[in-house]
Nucleic acid binder design. Structure first.
Lengths: 192, 192, 192, 192
DNA sequence: CATGAATGAGACTTCATTCAT
DNA sequence: CATGAATGAAGTCTCATTCAT
C-alpha cells in the first residue's frame, strides 16, 4: 500500500533539506565549480541520480541554497514588522547578523563567493534575490534619518561596507577577532 | 642574423605578459574554473599549445598572475624602504591602493574570489603569497603605535577590514561611491 | 464482497490496454528510444512502478503493442477462413487495410519505424511476428494465380510494395491524398 | 613548425568524412538513439572527444550526414540544368536513383528512419532539407505534363510513392528483388 | 494492486594537456 | 617557438528498473 501524499511530501522535504545541507558544505569548501555532484551525493549518502529528483540541475541546487539563505537573513526583520527600528532593535539586529555569520559560516562563504562571480547566476536572478532585503535597507536608512545623521543613505552604505569587511575577513580567516571588531563597530554607533 | 639571447628573453617575457593579461581578463570575468585554456588562447590570439610553453599548467598561470599582483601592491612600499611611515606617506599609500583597485579592477576581483576559495591554492602557497606584504603590515602597525593609538594591532586590523569592505563593494557593484567612502575613511584617520 | 477472479482478470486487461494505449501514443510520437517510462506513466495517469506489474520491461511493452497490432491486421482474414479470396473480397480487404491505416495512424507509424530499425527486436522475434500474416500472403498469391497473372508471386510483391509506399507517404505527410492514390491502385487491379 | 592552414584544412575534411562514414554505419544499423558516441568513436578509431572537435553535438553529426545525403541525391540533376527532362533522361535518372540506393543502403536506411521520427529534427530543419529537391520535383512534373499525362502532379506523386515502396522494401529485406520490380516500374512509364 | 523515492549504469559533453609536424 | 588535432579522464544528467511501504 503506498504512502499517503502527505507522507511523501514530508519525506521529500526532509531529503531535500538533507541534500542541500550536504551541498552547502561542499560548495562552500571547494567552490561551486570545483564541487561535483558525486561529492555532494557521497556526502549526503545518496545516489547521484537522486539529486535530480529534487533539483533541476547543479545550478538550481545552488540557487535553492542561496535563496533560503536570503530568507533566513531577513527573517528577524519580518518578525517585527511595524516598519520602525528603535535604537535597541538596531543593535540587536546587528548582533543577530554577526551571530548568524558565526553560526552559518558555510552559507556566508558560499554567498560571498557567488557574489564575486557574477556569471554563476544571471544578473536577473541576482536582482531577484537582492530584492528580498530591500525593505530591510529602507528601514535602516530610515533609522539613520531619525537618528539625525546628515546623510543617512551614505551612513547605511558605510555600515554595510564595514560589515562586509568584517564578515569577509572572518570567513577567510577563522582566527579573525570578529567579536572585538564588531564591538568596536557597535560602539561607533551606539556609545557616545 | 640570429637574435641575441637577451632579445629572446625580452620576447619571451612580453609574450608571457600578453598571455597573462588575457588570462586575467577571462579569469576575473568567468572565475577560474569556468575559464578554459581555449578561451584564454583565443583572447590572447595564440594557439592553445603555446600557453604550455610558458606555463606549467592552468593553475600555474593563475599563480603567476596572482603573484605579480601581490608584487604590484607592495611595490610602493618597496620604493620607500626606510621602514618608517610618516602620516603623509600613510595617506598617500591608502590613496594609492584604492587608485590601484580602480585601475586594475579585474586583478582585484580575481584576487578576492581566489581568496574566498582556499582550495584553488594550497594553504602553503597562500601563506607564501601573504608573506610578501608582511613588512607592510609591520610598518603600518608601527605607524599606529607612533601615532598614539592604544591598540595599534587592532587599529591596523580595522583599517584592513574597512578597506576590504570598500573594495569588495566596489568590485561587486560598479556604481559604488568608492571615492566618497574612501574620503570618509581618510577623514577618520587624518582629520581631527 | 471480494471480486471474483474473472472480475480481476477483466480489470487487469483493461488497465493493461490503457497503458498500452498511452505507450503507443508516446512511442509513435517520439520513437521508442526517446520515449521514457515516466512519459508513458504520466500519459496513462499511473505510477511508473505500476507499469512493471503488467509488462516485464519497456521492450516487452513495445512487443505487446506490436503483437496486438499484427493480430488486428490479420483479423479480417481470420473471419473468412475458407482459404479462397474472391475478387470482391480482395477489393474489400485492400480497402479495409487502408481504412485501418487512417484510423490507427499511430500504430502504423510505430510499426514502420520499428521495422526500419531491426535492432529494436531480434531477428527471431520479427520472424515470429511476420509469421502471423503468412497465410494472408499465400491466399493473395493464390488469388493472383487464379486471376491469371503470369507471375503471381511478383504481383503480390508489387501490390505489397505499392501499398507500403502509400502508407509510408501518408504516415510522414498527413496531407497525402491517400484516398485518391488508393483508388488509382484499385483501378489497376479491378477495372479494365 | 606547424602545418600550413591548408594542410590543417585538408586533415580536417578527411577526418570529418571519416567520422561521418563511421557514424552513418552505426546510425543506420542501430538507429540514432540507440547509437552512442562511444560506438561511433570506436568504429572510426578515434577518441570520443575528437568527434566534438568536428561536430557540435550528436544531433549535428546526424544533420551533417543527412544533409550531404540530400546533396548527393540531387547531384545528377544539377549536372544537367537546362531544366527540361527528355524521356531518356527520366529513365536514366530513375535508374540512377535506384543505383544509389543499392550503393548507399546505409544512408537510405538512415534517411527513412529519420523521416519516420519527426522529433529527431525540428519541422523547420526537415523543410530546409526537403527544399533541396524541390527543383527536381518541378522538373519531373513538367516532364509528365509534356508527356501528356492528364494529371501530372498526381502522376509524380504515384511515381514517388511507388519508389518509396520499392526502396523501403529493399532496405528492410536485403533479398528483395529490387531490379525486377524496378524494371516493372520502368516498363509502366516507358514501354507501350 | 499502487506509489514514487531510490539506485546506478551509462549516455553526452567538456577540457586540460600532449605531441607530431 | 608555434600550431591545433588528438586524447581520455571526469563531469553533468537521464532513465529503466527495483522496492519499501
Amino acid at each position: 500500500m503506498p504512502r499517503t501524499r502527505q507522507q511523501y511530501e514530508e519525506l521529500r522535504r526532509e531529503k531535500m533539506q538533507h541534500i542541500m545541507d550536504a551541498a552547502l558544505e561542499i560548495f562552500s569548501t571547494k567552490g561551486f565549480h570545483a564541487s561535483t555532484i558525486a561529492d555532494i551525493a557521497q556526502k549526503a549518502g545518496v545516489a547521484k541520480g537522486l539529486i535530480y529528483n529534487y533539483f533541476k540541475s547543479k545550478e538550481d541546487l545552488l540557487y535553492q541554497i542561496i535563496s533560503r539563505f536570503f530568507e533566513a537573513i531577513v527573517e528577524k526583520f519580518d518578525e517585527n514588522n511595524n516598519g520602525v527600528l528603535t535604537s535597541e532593535e538596531m543593535r540587536l539586529y546587528i548582533n543577530d547578523i554577526f551571530g548568524k555569520v558565526v553560526k552559518n559560516r558555510s552559507s556566508w562563504k558560499l554567498y560571498f563567493s557567488v557574489m564575486l562571480q557574477p556569471n554563476v547566476f544571471s544578473r536577473e536572478i541576482i536582482e531577484k534575490l537582492e530584492h528580498k532585503y530591500m525593505p530591510m535597507v529602507t528601514m535602516m536608512i530610515e533609522y539613520f534619518r531619525r537618528a539625525g545623521y546628515p546623510n543617512p543613505e551614505m551612513e547605511y552604505q558605510i555600515l554595510h561596507t564595514i560589515s562586509d569587511g568584517i564578515v569577509i575577513n572572518y570567513l577567510v580567516n577563522e582566527n579573525f577577532p570578529l567579536e572585538e571588531i564588531k564591538n568596536e563597530l557597535l560602539r561607533r554607533y551606539f556609545d557616545q
